[in-house]
Design a protein around this nucleic acid. Structure first.
Lengths: 364, 364
DNA sequence: TTGTACGCGTTATCAG
DNA sequence: CTGATAACGCGTACAA
């Protein structure tokens, strides 16, 4: 900065502040102080309604602040107080409607408590997950809400942070290896109910096209599926279980799975699918192959795309309670953040999945 | 803070920093300085590769920094430099797939250039838009990417910021009243092509169910629709034009529009719909009413839901180029931010819409 | 080539 | 009740 600049700075502090800091339309405590012939500390205290300031000066200061629409600079506050009043979010992708619902839930709670949110996406990549978590913690967030990417096996990057005391809450796709709050849907019950529904409708050869094998939700849904079959006295056939390593991001994945199922000697008479992507893609492919639903193959699956089941009334949907999940997770995170002392007791919240079954004859 | 705390602080600065600032896993310039018996400024300059530092010290410092995985505190940098290396985004809602695509485009460019993004949603509310813009500027963002909410008529809040020099780029839903870069889809051509497609297929009574009348994209698409009809020598019938004030957020809106159309003496034989929501909802309602597409009523519309047109091959889709729009807008914004001087020449980028027509007999 | 001093906006401590 | 001062972490004009 040139000398003349420095000169100007001393003579026209307000103007120069505006230009240099690009802090649009904000005056500082210092401006108030000079305008009112007070010291900065007095102004600061007055604004924070300290007991050691007279009513008179308080009124004076707050009045002036109101009038000039003063708002404290959050960056300066962050620097001073060591906390940023913002929380970081890591999800696979916001294009997934489930996660955008979760984010809406998160925002609703965060904003209510004066917290800001910073959203990042992993696009299911482990590398990006590590990078994002790094960025976020580095931006000195006060807490982290994370749903693991499908690629993630090693969670050392999170363990370190957890040990250092960063409040973390997992949602949807969680891990056993870190002891903290977790919020999940009752995926076991979802899988169980869906499978039971098909069994009750008389189907016996029930296939399962699902997400990558390693993530928590996949395992839980599979467990529910297994339990239902077991109770019905039906053996689990590995040929009927198809995993999509990329969660159906490639149509090819689902196509392969479906082709393999259809080329079995003992073709399935029903399919239980998981995830929005996989369910809608399966539905699409069945339509493309002119396979009648549910006459030839029945279908039940998780989806947020309401369109899917309206277009095809024979598809039953298990809605995922995204918004609520976001809210609960954020509440838990705020508890951790606002607790002064370390917390040692954690809980796992299990939200109900809503199984919406629809009589396939209702609309025909 | 108690006296013992202060004592500790002086004796164990590193430990205390970690605890007080919750700045997870970061050492400061000061830590490096004391460790290496240098002054902070030397370290700072060494890290910034200043010419006035010897190669020796540089190596020493950068080595230590690497080893201890030092990263400058962005909050302190923001405070000092008056810019935060982050840009604000305002969209209606990320649940809209078009906007999540845009955001992905924005992120791809922003991250490449070392910028962070902060996403906010208006949920189509003017009040929330003003609030979000306030929050963002207040967080001292370096630039703003905004798509106006449907409710927004008065843009005084943006004019002020623009005058103060905040770089702003509008995308998708823009305004004439502010002179800056804008990135839009060629909605005129989209509307024109869609209508022509229907005309060429022999339809003559073409209705139009569309977004709120006041936003830019609605007007542009309507202009294209009008032009096509005009060229075909068909008069525009106001009864055929239906606006959805909430962009189809309520199914009822679309339902009313459709019912009104169906109860006309001269029922339309085709409909041109805009927006993902409206298109898919219309499709759903037509299905529900058992109206055959395109035999009884043909449909063409904007949608990102690939599912829609696969399930119903007679629906033609005009895809919205979201990702590219996000990229272009961000490039323009970064130009503005990185330009040292005010810019007076602005351009409006018009991206092509891809009209995907599908022969309705292809799959039957 | 390195170090000193100051300021960014805010708050906490302590002295008046 | 009010004010001076230091500090948060960083960057830089200027002195040594």
């Amino acid at each position: 900065m040139c000398y003349i600049g420095e000169m100007l700075k001393k003579q026209l502090p307000l103007l120069f502040n505006t230009l240099a800091n690009m802090n649009f339309s904000s005056i500082t405590i210092k401006d108030i102080a000079t305008a009112l012939n007070l010291s900065v500390s007095t102004v600061s205290k007055a604004l924070r309604d300290s007991y050691e300031i007279s009513e008179n000066t308080k009124k004076l200061v707050t009045g002036y602040a109101q009038e000039h629409n003063y708002r404290p600079n959050p960056i300066a506050q962050s620097l001073k107080q060591g906390r940023s009043k913002s929380i970081g979010i890591v999800v696979s992708t916001i294009e997934n409607q489930f996660f955008s619902q979760v984010i809406n839930g998160i925002e609703s709670v965060a904003y209510e408590n004066g917290f800001n949110v910073i959203i990042t996406q992993t696009h299911e990549s482990y590398e990006l997950e590590v990078k994002n978590v790094g960025h976020l913690t580095h931006r000195s967030i006060d807490g982290l809400l994370i749903s693991l990417s499908t690629e993630t096996k090693d969670i050392a990057h999170l363990k370190t942070l957890h040990k250092q005391g960063l409040p973390i809450v997992f949602f949807d796709r969680v891990t056993d290896e870190i002891d903290t709050h977790k919020v999940i849907a009752d995926n076991f019950k979802g899988g169980y109910d869906a499978t039971c529904h098909l069994l009750d409708s008389g189907y016996k050869r029930i296939a399962h096209i699902t997400s990558p094998a390693n993530i928590s939700i996949t395992k839980e849904r599979f467990a529910g599926y297994s339990k239902a079959l077991e109770e019905a006295g039906i053996a689990i056939d590995d040929d009927y279980i198809k995993y999509c390593p990329h969660g159906g991001r490639d149509i090819g994945e689902v196509e392969n799975a479906l082709n393999e199922l259809l080329s079995l000697k003992n073709k399935p008479d029903a399919i239980f699918t998981t995830s929005d992507r996989i369910t809608t893609t399966t539905l699409m492919l069945l339509n493309r192959l002119k396979i009648k639903i549910p006459q030839e193959i029945a279908l039940i699956g998780y989806t947020n795309t309401t369109l899917a089941d309206v277009l095809n009334p024979s598809l039953s949907s298990v809605y995922q309670p995204g918004f609520e999940m976001g809210q609960k997770a954020t509440q838990k995170l705020l508890e951790l953040i606002l607790a002064k002392r370390p917390v040692y007791e954690f809980e796992t919240l299990v939200l109900p999945t809503q199984l919406v079954t629809r009589d396939s004859t209702a609309r025909q």
